[in-house]
Nucleic acid binder design. Sequence first.
DNA 1: AAGCCAGTCAACCGCAGGGGT
DNA 2: GACCCCTGCGGTTGACTGGCT
Length: 247
Amino acid sequence: MGRAPCCDRAAVKRGPWSPEEDDALRDYMQRYGNTGSWITLPKRAGLRRCGKSCRLRWLNYLRPDIRHGGFTDEEDAVIYSLYSQLGSKWSLIASQLERRTDNDVKNHWNTKLKKRLATAAAAFSSRISPSSMAPLPAPVAAAHPTPPSSLLPLAVPVLPTVKAEAYTYDDDFLAPDDALFVAAAEGSTSASLSAASSGSNWSAVDNAATNEGFFADFCTAAVSDLAAADQYLSGFFYPLDPTLSLV
DNA sequence: AAGCCAGTCAACCGCAGGGGT
DNA sequence: GACCCCTGCGGTTGACTGGCT
């Protein structure tokens, strides 16, 4: 016994909205607002649409106070930063951006930012060559379909996480250099890097990397400029471990 | 010109949770 | 407390478009 549908699917129109339907919904909302429920709105507005469809169309498209497309670098940076802290809480992220909808932010992330971040991570990990580092884990994602010509045509690894990688990276647990790489790649502050380089306080590495904002800063840098992201990361690596080198 | 493919984005679906009864 | 209704959310789908062969 499934959930009852919210409306009679045979009786309502589905698919793209026509200009006439848009006009009808816009006119109704501007005259009366949605004083009743979304479920009853289609009838009141003279639309053969599901109430949920009306709500979505209004909130994501017709509402006068929203912008579409053309995300700025600043907005991208905010999205990266918040995503690194909140995950896919699109409505929360959108609420921090002026006149953006959760659907727009989600689409922008899935079609552009996610790929850009993967490219930045791939470019970064390909250039770090600590002398004693164990081989990187096998790439999880498929090869990037169209890598920029400025980048090596390599497979896209996921950014390793401290919690996942610290205990699985290799059979011998972590050498300090591995921990340094992992901590930096995941998102640690200089505090966690210091802990990593001392090679002892693993829970401190974990906590610092998880809770603090290095990853968000890396994402922010990666948004606009891969070279800047590289520079940013190497700024953390070099002072702590001179055996690391960029190739 | 036609077909294919990848990228984009509007729209749909199902679930979770809040509020009312 | 149990149930129902409604809204909001996040994941996914599918139509459309433009570039390439």
